[in-house]
Design a protein around this nucleic acid. Structure first.
Length: 500
RNA sequence: GAGCCAUUAGCUCAGUCGGUAGAGCACCUGACUUUUAAUCAGGGUGUCGAUGGUUCGAGUCCAUCAUGGCUCACCA
């Protein structure tokens, strides 16, 4: 094996055959990596036009088309042959006949390999069996494939190869292509509905000097010219709220965030968040906004609100259930944290129920641990869980009823968190204290506690209107709507360890 | 980070008790002018993930490593 063939997929001989064909094309005076091609129809356009006509009508009209795509199947019959090409919309059959296109063009047709990009011009007809087919009049090689494609029947199953060579996965596994088209539609729909409500889409920095806005370990990097440490953002939150201070009353951003943490079926180091902030709203308003947004997206991309997920049915018809975190914990465990007043009581309850308590854990952390351990996985149908403890919510406004808790909610669907929202903390003095409490946690060993963001506190000192904010994990929403069990199935290029 | 599982032809997979590797598709040669996973005749193209070990002999047994998957941990 020569060095340039190292690591390639195919056997030396199959590669050699295709390389030889490359030279045969050149010998015919044809450059195998061609130039532009005027496409008049996608495969779906041809099917739509032809389906509306009978065989006889098509024969009379001789509708001319130019279509391009990747050769994915071919069946030769001596001096004639059929083929299928795949374009972004799907497949269309081609028919080549030596009598009609001449010996030279027919030899070219026979020289093609599965995987080659071609353009054809011809006319549309229906075969004896009724399949809409383009009768080739002119064949153009647009791009030679040197690697063979996986098998037509079983496709590509090997999960590792599917992720590492997503381009092959997209070619041979149609449901994969559909899932990513759906992803695009989800984001499109999200934008449309937010834009319609007067939200302004903005872009904020991904290189941050302070890793705040979420509890997560950041990626660290460095700017050479300024000789300055930087982190990749772990959230969009604090910059978007600065814009609220600046008087941009409704803003949102759909963007990548980065967290230097474990990888699982629900976590990738980089993922897509949508965060929005709306002046004069509170977390109750955001609940309504959230459920309607997701309901509308589901209708847009799935045509309804009852969705199959993992063999069960999720009902996304609004309104959704609202439940206080403490009430849910009481339902599942009988422990009523409204009634417990001291940290000691909470620790006792945790010991009784086998909940681990770390030294840095306060009352609120214990409530949260109960929720995560005992409740979270039970929440299959959509539910807004509200009233998170203040200790785990350093950016949320305290609840007027009980200042140990906040006006915050998380949205759970299929046992997973899909969104996080609150009435934003706008009191700069309280905000500074919350950051300081986070720094103390950090000192006690929680390296995911927030860092102090002095400039953000300064912004709040200029005055922020009452504001409701929301973050939605876009990847998880796509997983839900596409009925995919792993985040890697909705990320085109999930992070993989490098080989060798 | 831990446990379990997987890794054999380009792809999808067999491979029994340890005896020097097989099928289908793809590919190659030939036949065939409306096929549909086209068909017919012929051809096996391989560092059995890697490295050690046990053995007369290892795809198979053992150890280590690599990569991946799942579960757990982590991750609001």
């Amino acid at each position: 094996m020569s060095s340039q063939e190292q690591g390639s997929g195919a056997t030396t001989s199959e590669l050699a055959v295709r390389r030889a064909k490359l030279e045969q094309w050149r010998a015919r005076g044809i450059e195998p990596y061609g130039g532009r091609f005027d496409v008049t129809h996608r495969s779906s356009d041809i099917l739509r036009v032809a389906d509306a006509r009978t065989r006889e009508e098509l024969e009379e009209q001789r509708l001319s088309v130019k279509v391009a795509g990747r050769l994915v199947a071919r069946r030769g019959h001596g001096k004639a042959g059929f083929a299928h090409i795949l374009d972004q919309d799907g497949q269309i059959q081609l028919y080549a006949k030596s009598d009609a296109i001449g010996q030279d063009q027919y030899e070219a047709f026979e020289l093609l390999d599965i995987g080659d990009w071609i353009g054809v011009s011809g006319y549309v007809f229906k075969t004896n069996r009724g399949e809409v087919t383009v009768h080739i009049e002119q064949l153009t090689l647009l791009g030679k494939a040197l690697q063979p494609l996986p098998e037509k029947w079983h496709g590509l199953r090997d999960v590792e190869t599917r992720y590492r060579r997503r381009y092959v996965d997209l070619i041979v596994n149609p449901p994969v292509r559909e899932a990513f088209i759906l992803r695009s539609k989800v984001i499109q729909s999200m934008r449309r509905h937010l834009d319609a409500q007067g939200f302004l889409e903005v872009e904020t920095p991904t290189l941050h000097t302070v890793a705040a806005g979420a509890a997560a370990k950041p990626f660290r990097t460095h700017h050479n010219a300024l000789d300055m440490p930087l982190t990749l953002r772990i959230a969009l939150e604090l910059h978007l709220k600065r814009l609220i201070v600046g008087g941009m009353e409704r803003v949102y951003e759909i963007g990548r965030v980065y967290r230097n943490e474990g990888i699982s079926t629900r976590h990738n180091p980089e993922f897509t968040m949508m965060e929005l902030y709306a002046a004069y709203m509170d977390f109750q308003d955001i609940m309504k906004l959230t459920e309607h947004l997701i309901e509308q997206i589901a209708v847009d991309v799935r045509g309804g609100t009852d969705l199959a997920y993992d063999g069960q049915v999720v009902h996304l018809k609004t309104p959704w259930r609202r439940a206080h975190m403490v009430d849910l914990v009481r339902e599942q465990t009988g422990v009523d944290f409204f009634a417990l007043q001291t940290l000691a009581e909470a620790r006792d309850a945790a010991r009784t129920h086998g909940i681990e308590v770390l030294p840095s854990h306060g009352f609120g952390h214990i409530v949260n641990s109960f929720f995560e351990e005992k409740v979270e996985h039970t929440l299959f149908q959509p539910v807004f869980v509200y009233g998170h403890p203040v200790e785990i919510s350093p950016l949320a406004k305290r609840s007027v009823q009980d200042p140990r808790f906040t006006d915050r909610f998380e949205l759970f669907i299929v046992g997973r968190e899909h969104g996080n929202a609150f009435s934003e903390l706008s009191d700069p003095i309280d905000q500074r204290e919350r950051f300081e409490a986070q720094l103390q946690e950090r000192a006690l060993g929680n390296d995911e506690a927030h860092e102090m963001d002095e400039d953000f506190v300064l912004a709040l000192e200029y005055g922020m209107p009452p504001t409701g904010g929301l973050g939605i994990g876009v990847d998880r929403l796509v997983m839900l709507l596409a009925d995919q069990p792993s985040i890697r199935d909705v990320l085109l290029f999930p992070l993989m360890r490098t080989q060798e």
